[in-house]
Amino acid sequence: MIYFDNAATTAMTTEVLKSYNDVVTRVIGNPSSLHNLGTVAGRLLNASRRQISDLLNVSPDEIFFTSGGSESDNWIIKGTAFEKQAFGKHLIISSVEHPAIKNSAEWLRDQGFKVDYAPVDKNGFVLVDELEKLICEDTILVSVMAVNNEVGAIQPLKEIATLLGNFPKISFHVDAVQAIGKIATKDFLLPRVDFASFSAHKFHGPRGVGFNYIKSGKRLTPLIHGGGQESGKRSTTENLPGIVATAKALRISLEGFEEKHAHVAEMKKVIYNELKEHNNVLVFSGVDNYAANILTWGIKGIRGEVTVHAFEDHEIYISTTSACASRKNSAAGTLMAMKVDPKLATSAVRISLDYTNTMTEVELFLTVFRQVLLKLG
Results as ranks from 00 to 15, higher is better:
A41F: 11
S326N: 12
T162I: 11
T367V: 10
T185D: 12
V126E: 05
G181H: 06
N30K: 10
P156G: 13
G68N: 11
T296R: 08
T39D: 13
S48P: 00
R49Y: 10
F167S: 08
K169V: 08
Q371E: 15
E266P: 00
S67M: 12
E361S: 10
V27G: 09
F195S: 05
W107G: 02
F65Y: 12
H173V: 02
G38M: 14
K122A: 09
H201G: 02
P60S: 14
R50Y: 08
S197Y: 04
E83L: 12
Y3S: 06
Q111N: 09
V27K: 08
Q371A: 11
D194F: 03
E312L: 13
I180N: 12
V16K: 06
E259N: 12
A332K: 02
V306I: 14
P241M: 09
L282F: 09
K276H: 09
T66F: 07
Q51W: 00
A47C: 10
R350W: 10
R219V: 11
T236A: 15
I28N: 12
A291Q: 04
L164E: 04
M336I: 11
V147P: 05
T356E: 04
L108R: 04
I135Y: 01
G124W: 03
L127D: 07
V120Y: 00
R50A: 15
E361D: 14
M145S: 01
G304P: 00
I224G: 03
N166C: 07
M1L: 02
A332R: 05
Q229T: 12
C136V: 10
H314G: 10
A86R: 11
N21C: 11
R109D: 07
I243E: 06
L250A: 02
W75S: 15
E277T: 08
V128S: 06
N46Q: 15
L91C: 10
E315F: 10
R370T: 10
I299H: 01
G152P: 04
E137G: 01
N148L: 03
N357F: 08
I224F: 10
S19I: 05
A331F: 04
I92V: 13
D5F: 00
E315V: 01
A249L: 05
V349D: 06
D194P: 01
T358A: 08
A331H: 00
V264L: 07
L56M: 11
V96F: 03
I271S: 00
K300C: 13
V264W: 02
L240G: 02
D121Y: 07
V283H: 03
A179Y: 01
I101P: 02
T358P: 04
V340D: 03
D73I: 05
T246G: 11
F284G: 08
A310R: 09
V264G: 01
N74L: 15
N166K: 13
L275A: 12
K268F: 07
S95T: 12
S48G: 09
E97F: 00
